[in-house]
Design a protein around this nucleic acid. Structure first.
Ligand SMILES: [Mn+2]
Ligand SMILES: [Mn+2]
Ligand SMILES: [Mn+2]
Ligand SMILES: [Mn+2]
Lengths: 166, 166
DNA sequence: TTTTAAGTTTAGCCCAAGCTAACAAACATA
DNA sequence: TATGTTTGTTAGCTTGGGCTAAACTTAAAA
């Protein structure tokens, strides 16, 4: 089997053998993970936009194109395009030049992101990660939490808070 | 669940509490997070391919196009294209129809992913997440860990294991 | 009320990463 | 050695999410 086969023959058999079982498990795990990507879900980016829009509305009562663009570090045309997409998908009602209103569907997604972000930062701070880095990592991780993981992490953080020293 | 494990984190509480007020401005935190995306980095997808290639080579001594495609649930042309890209970026040496060898650079990235994945699954299992879900989430989260977070989480898991090993 | 400035959208492009169909190389077997 | 099968690559298209430049709306100033 090609040139690599010779590597097996002449290679380090001990190392190969000792990690055989574990490597196999890992590959299965990875395949499982990559195959089970839930279909027809919101993209990470949609979630990011919804999260920012939600926070802006909470803070000022409305969310403008420029404000959104600043908080996501993207151009305003990118924001407009995403707003059209989120309107199309029913996450918000968008009237051009006029404004945005989150729908029930959009609010639910946004609140979900808010809560996950919160939880993650809280946990990361607990184990000693600095605020800024905690926020940066949370911004990425928040899109990859299975409901069960969310629940278990929530339980963990809540229990840990109970043992907070005076 | 690890009953005494909570003690581990209690030392961090003072610091966490003192920054709660600052944590309130969620919008600033989000802007900061999105603006600090380091340029010229490997994409998540590159990391996924490298991880799988690394595991396959560890297991069988070589990694074929078809095997990679199966473990990532993508078509073989997609794999070929990424192999060309990873060759171009110096992560591996690729000779078409012949085979792949990870370079030092590629191995480092791949081992990093392997370790992060490991760590994450270990942590998630600790707080009670089922193996399959732990693997799925780890597959997404592994790409979003700042070095400091990695270190702190490693410390946490190690300490927690000492508190109640096995 | 006209003019200007600020904000927003459209047009048209780019890039990563995916796909299918067609083609080519390598290997196995008669 | 000739030939069919398996595996891998190329060609060309699609989609999501970026971008800049140009056009358009709205709001503010003159
Ligand atoms: Mn995010
Ligand atoms: Mn967030
Ligand atoms: Mn991954
Ligand atoms: Mn992984």
């Amino acid at each position: 089997m090609y040139l690599r086969m010779f590597k097996v023959i002449t290679g380090e058999w001990e190392r190969l053998w000792s990690t055989m079982a574990r490597a196999a498990d890992r590959l299965d795990a990875i395949r499982e993970a990559h195959s089970l990507q839930s279909q027809s879900k919101n993209t990470d980016r949609m979630e990011d936009y919804l999260e920012v829009i939600y926070e802006l509305i909470k803070k000022k009562g409305y969310a403008t194109t420029v404000d959104i663009s600043k908080h996501l570090s993207v151009s305003s045309p990118s924001v407009t395009k995403m707003l059209q997409k989120l309107d199309e998908s029913g996450h918000l009602n968008y009237e051009k030049y006029r404004g945005i209103v989150l729908t029930e569907k959009g609010s639910e997604v946004a609140e979900g992101m808010h809560d996950k972000h919160n939880l993650l930062v809280e946990f990361l701070r607990m184990i000693g990660v600095k605020e800024e880095i905690a926020n940066r990592d949370a911004e990425g991780i928040e899109h990859h939490l299975h409901p069960e993981t969310l629940k278990k992490l929530t339980d963990f953080v809540r229990t840990a808070k109970k043992v907070r020293p005076r």
